[in-house]
Design a protein around this nucleic acid. Structure first.
Lengths: 224, 224
DNA sequence: CAAGAACCGGAGAGGCTGCCTCAACTTAAA
DNA sequence: TTTAAGTTGAGGCAGCCTCTCCGGTTCTTG
């Protein structure tokens, strides 16, 4: 559990009810951010936690600090996944597992996806964890390449783009067919093998009506 | 050139200066929408055209009508591309050309991309043109499959998802490496061939710094 | 060369949304 | 019992966008 936000806090313990509320807020933040992304309001989170907005602001100076407190742990999870991939006997299988698992994580947590792919959220701590991830993922990729199973012209910097692409599919379709992203990720992975091959797609295509429904729900991103 | 927006206008000709302004507005709308997407304000467009906002609103009852007037023609272009694809000798080459050309169109016109992939913009006329596109594209796909070169488990409904994926790459990277999307589209297409094969990627990977810059600029989409 | 219809400009009304504050009230803990 | 810590939620403030309005300008026609 991440501690509160004060820089070098003397760690004065919170009053019992306050501590309870703090937990409730964190819990709600996790739920709300994962469903609605970082655009969720602190008002939303407060309401969802059954406390007043003021209570949230008393505990976290602003949204950014809350995000920070929220996502450091989850980012560490990704690190653990990378380590598991490196421990795998078959480098290619390790790579595949890592890729599927991280995308799965993104699919279940919109907030995490946004923190991972943008530098606009979270501050030092988040950036630091992310930096620690880079060499790890690089090795996952290079090991798979060295084993001759991942195409040699693939690059670590392609990884976030993979996530970006599938992230968009998830965003577009989650209300209609929350699992179709697997189809497109499989398609993508079929283009990644060094020895070309075709895996069976793990999910059928959408029908036109699904697509229509998705198009109705979708709103394009807002500026930069 | 699309005419003005009145339902069954008696076609009273505009005054010369008014007509000039109307053209200027349309031209600016095309430019501004294509660069900044449909989130651009009518104020922006007016300013860019060197006229007052009032002038825009005098000519187009609201933003939606302007969008409508704007994009019907461009959508027709896509239809023409599909027909060209059907006329190609090699069905697979036709499919490839169509895919590359449409994505290229999206890459140069953010507004068009948004109109294509969302049902929230444009009204009857746009919807109608889009509907006419469906059977055409279906045939492009099926012809490529019948020739045995496009993988048989591909579906027409996968086409918009391809565009969605690459659209996101474009969005994410255009400020930094406006052409990398080609790399990822090639990767995707490598997963689409029935007979697996590896084409040389038409664009190298980004370096870490580029990726960082892209991540800084990127803001996640805003709700639905 | 009027006269007047059509047109222009752009400040700002009106409406929405989101971040955060504060004064009045409640409660745990010493 | 006292009091510091905690809570609350309406509302201040700021930004953003769509669209209106009216004083002033410009074209066109008789």
């Amino acid at each position: 559990m991440t501690r509160d936000a004060a820089p070098a806090a003397p760690a004065r313990p919170l009053r019992r009810d306050a501590e309870l509320n703090r937990r409730r807020i964190l819990e709600s933040a996790r739920e709300v951010f994962s469903q609605r992304g970082l655009e969720a309001t602190l008002d939303d989170i407060a309401h969802h936690a059954g406390v007043g907005v003021g209570t949230v602001y008393r505990r976290f100076p602003n949204k950014e600090h809350l995000v920070e407190a929220m996502f450091v742990d989850r980012l560490e999870e990704v690190g653990a996944m990378a380590e598991a991939a490196l421990a795998a006997d078959d480098p290619w299988q390790g790579f595949l597992d890592f890729a599927w698992k991280t995308v799965e994580l993104h699919s279940s947590d919109r907030g995490l996806r946004e923190v991972m792919l943008s530098k606009a959220f979270g501050r030092e701590r988040v950036a630091e964890v992310k930096n620690r991830l880079v060499p790890l993922i690089t090795e996952v990729v290079e090991r798979a390449q060295a084993s001759g199973q991942l195409r040699p012209d693939f690059s670590v910097t392609d990884m976030p783009m993979l996530h970006q692409m599938i992230g968009e599919v998830i965003e577009y379709t989650h209300a209609v067919r929350p699992e179709v992203w697997r189809r497109y990720f499989a398609l993508l992975l079929d283009g990644l093998r060094a020895e070309p091959g075709r895996a069976e797609l793990p999910h059928g295509p959408m029908c036109i009506d699904d697509l229509d429904a998705a198009a109705c729900a979708w709103r394009p991103p807002r500026h930069g």
